[in-house]
Design a protein around this nucleic acid. Structure first.
Ligand code: FES
Ligand code: FES
Lengths: 144, 144
DNA sequence: TAAAATAAAGACAATTAGGTCCTTAATTTT
DNA sequence: AAAATTAAGGACCTAATTGTCTTTATTTTA
């Protein structure tokens, strides 16, 4: 579904946002520990999130990553997915035809499309904040 | 979503079933041409389908692959997916936690699960015959 | 019986995804 | 100013997936 990089990106963003609520920056080391991900690999995907303006990075002692201001209310999970995996999740043909279209559909198209649209709806309508609150309240988890 | 191997498997099965309706066996060469897939690689996945009892293979002149009797009515797409990709599509955690469960859910779980269940429903409730009819009537396509 | 046609099987190669390491740059603390 | 701390960047490595090739086994046709 999502690539490993994208899974790490979403989990990392949630952790970073939860720290930002406490006005703390999250260091790469902390992030990798809290989401149980490979540090160097996670660093790469965080750079992409940073370049996409989803998170902000600061070098030096007490530096790290943060989600600025109330951005986590307006950042949608779809933006993270788009930054890391692109839009192929919503556009690819389920059976691998070169492109998914109404006028040259594969046999699965009509059945598959609603499911894919459902996925698109949830990622587009769920904000980073929405996912962060469950973590803060202890109802959801980022590792194991 | 599905692996390449699984995409080829579903497309191949649909073509084979459509030929079987005309009481013709489909040769590997024909299959690869009609679904536009790499011949040798497709052969591997057809062997798996054969070992899973979804299709039947016959060697020698006028041999090839077929879907026996009215099996295409009872074979569900889920069986093909299961034979090639296993059950991870329906069981994996969307954010990569070791396992998806209600009592240790990731932040995306509650939103993601309905979508995943939707996918599971369609593959479990769609028979090979269901997908073959659209091809036969010319409404759906297996390549390009 | 010999030849042709077909799938099965296994070794191998190429590509992509996932992951690591090392050096550099920027910032803060001492 | 020097040292420590942090992210950025690039080269590299590893594993999994995808794809190819060659040989063997089985069946039918001539
Ligand atoms: S054409 Fe295959 S999913 Fe749309
Ligand atoms: S725990 Fe992540 S999808 Fe269920």
């Amino acid at each position: 579904m999502f690539s490993k990089a994208c899974e790490y990106a979403i989990r990392a963003a949630i952790f970073i946002a939860s720290e930002s609520e406490k006005d703390k920056r999250a260091s790469l080391k902390d992030i990798a520990r809290e989401i149980d991900s490979p540090e160097a690999f996670t660093a790469k995907t965080l750079q992409k999130l940073s370049r996409s303006g989803i998170i902000t990075s600061t070098k030096g002692a007490h530096g790290g990553f943060e989600v600025k201001g109330d951005l986590s209310n307006t950042i949608m999970i779809s933006q993270i997915v788009l930054a890391i995996d692109g839009d192929k999740v919503y556009t690819r043909c389920s059976l691998g035809l070169h492109n998914c279209s109404e006028d040259h559909p594969c046999p699965f198209h009509s059945r598959f499309k609603p499911v894919r649209n459902g996925l698109q709806q949830i990622v587009e309508n769920t904000s980073l904040k929405d996912l962060t609150s469950g973590l803060v309240s202890g109802d959801t988890f980022l590792k194991i």
